[in-house]
Design a binder for these strands. Structure first.
Lengths: 334, 334
DNA sequence: AATTACTGTGCAAGCGTTTGTACATTTGAT
DNA sequence: ATCAAATGTACAAACGCTTGCACAGTAATT
């Protein structure tokens, strides 16, 4: 059907192995032969069959991405698609393709990982997760299969990973609010069991403590998720608290722009003017609300890019490091 | 290194071909033999090597996705990732994997398509585009390579595609506004050269004409893009028009929630209260603004799902149709 | 009892590459 | 002139699977 190595070999009057070596630019082939073979390749419009190549080389030149649709955040938060773009860019520049799979829960994540590994469908895997006790990480480590993680894993030593410095991000946000004169600052965190949640919480607590401000439990919500619903719910809870007037915050540090929008919705509904909010991810819409005075841009594309770089470099045998910290940027409203 | 068909064959005391036939559940193998072979497969924890399988079958069981990062819409509009989820779901349910590639412009799109086709890396391609005169479509048609398109192509007959009824979507939105008492209605459209833009524009024009309202050119913007910047710009242009007071709209039909946000930004800045806006894509944030009174949900996940279905079914030889129209849903603000 | 028709399994040839090794041929040194 | 080394190419065996065909063995038909 389509043109193969042998067709080229015949056309150029050499053997298949010679053509193969021309393709890999082997020094053992003379300049004239290379010339002749390349001409034949052009003329016949030959492209190597990647499947046959993968079989012979025992490498698919493909990385697999395991995504999770359990929470709505995959489709609502631009974080993921941005990271995917970053991954694709590094992969493509290095001759790799990217495969993805959307899974409904952790067990399906694991199944996909096992399928990828067992059927040798990919050379490495990128995980979009940082659960504590992540089953996929555990499995991949046991299999000694190459992988990298977006999000800091439990064991930061034996795993390649990229992440923001989430501690420093909320620390910085909180300090920013403090320098703006706020002292009653509320915090809304992310899902429990994720390191990102812990770090962001810790950064907030640290800033408050460094500046000598106390934190009242009634305005801190450390176990939720990144949804706007959770933001909404937290704000309503705060309002309905009996000691709200005593503890009323003037600013709220949230862990996601969606959360922040949920908070803002309540504030608008209840006509409460004097509370400002900060978010994460610097989504285009977040900054449209005048209450949202800052958002942390996590540079998702870079996170993806470096996750791909760690993985692919390591597959290639060019160990370039075991993790990257991608700087966040505090985007303040003009 | 890892366990192969031959290992299983040896363990079960049969030949490799028998094991292969057991895997495909061939009727030519007796029940007892199947039993024995399956036991060996379990015991050895054997998984078929997908690359070898692809080579022998001449099919990769993979579909390729060509994405374009030229405009920011890929990362800003949840449309794409939602469609990708839909694709992944149908693919996975049918034993296919999905590969994606992010490209910077139309030529890169084409390069990727050519690479996918020539190297036999995928069995089919899904295009996220509906440019008029699309180079990829032209190429894939000439190659007679299986593909489907999300977005209506020029030639609706010889190409498999899925799309919303964009004409009816804006028609419905416009009629909705009319029934709410609006008659001066402005329109902001999408990028030129895309069928989606034309259809949405036509739907708007039709509704206006059916209800006997005239359209003044100064409040219609049919050549732009889906960005919030463009929405912002259009609204400013309208405001600075000398005859704004005559033509001042009371409602604006936009082609994207981002555009709508751009419009709203201007309206808020200029403190213009009496103009409402409609959008597209029903993004979570869009509906937070009280001016945004409706948005068209395009059901992106279904678009992806059916694009994958068309493609994969056709690859399998089960021709199920040549296109799908996925219904939109007009989401009105409570 | 001999022929025919199944049934279940194995053999071996692919699928299109890569790569270790062998084999000519040329070159340079003796 | 002879031999060793260097150079350029071809051969053939992988890689792990699928599948057409052949071939036993058994069952059914005359």
């Amino acid at each position: 059907m389509s043109v193969t190595l042998n067709d080229v070999a015949r056309a150029a009057g050499v053997s298949a192995s010679t053509v193969s070596r021309v393709l890999s630019d082997s020094p053992r082939i003379s300049a004239e032969t290379k010339e002749r073979v390349r001409k034949a390749i052009k003329e016949l419009n030959y492209f190597p069959n990647s499947v046959a190549r993968s079989l012979a080389r025992n490498s698919t030149k493909t990385v697999g991405l395991i995504l999770n649709t359990e929470s709505q955040t995959l489709t609502r938060n631009p974080f993921f698609i941005q990271a995917m773009v970053g991954i694709s860019i590094y992969a493509q520049a290095n001759g790799y393709d990217v495969m993805f799979s959307c899974n409904k829960n952790e067990d399906e994540d694991l199944n996909t990982a096992m399928r990828f590994v067992s059927s040798r469908r990919v050379d490495g895997i990128i995980l979009f997760t940082s659960r504590t006790d992540d089953k996929c990480i555990y499995y991949l480590k046991r299999q000694e299969f190459p992988f990298s993680v977006i999000g800091r894993p439990d064991d930061t030593d034996s795993v390649m990973w990229v992440d923001n410095d989430n501690f420093q991000a909320t620390y910085q946000v909180t300090v920013y609010l403090i320098t703006k004169g706020h002292s009653k600052i509320s915090f809304i965190g992310g899902p429990p069991g994720h390191n990102v949640s812990k770090d962001r919480f810790d950064g907030y607590k640290r800033a408050m403590s460094v500046y000598g401000f106390s934190i009242s439990d009634s305005i801190v919500f450390s176990n939720g998720d990144f949804s706007e619903e959770f933001g909404y719910e937290c704000m309503r809870t705060m309002l309905s608290s009996p000691d709200f007037n005593i503890n009323k915050p003037t600013a709220i540090v949230t862990s996601d722009d969606m959360q922040a929008l949920g908070v803002i919705k309540v504030l608008n509904e209840k006509n409460i003017p004097d509370i400002v909010v900060t978010g994460f991810n610097n989504t285009p819409v977040g900054m449209y609300h005048s209450r949202m005075i800052a958002s942390v841009d996590v540079n998702a594309k870079d996170l993806g890019y470096y996750a791909a770089k760690l993985l692919i470099d390591s597959i290639k045998g060019e160990k370039t490091g075991s993790h990257y910290i991608v700087p966040t940027e505090l985007v303040k409203k003009a």
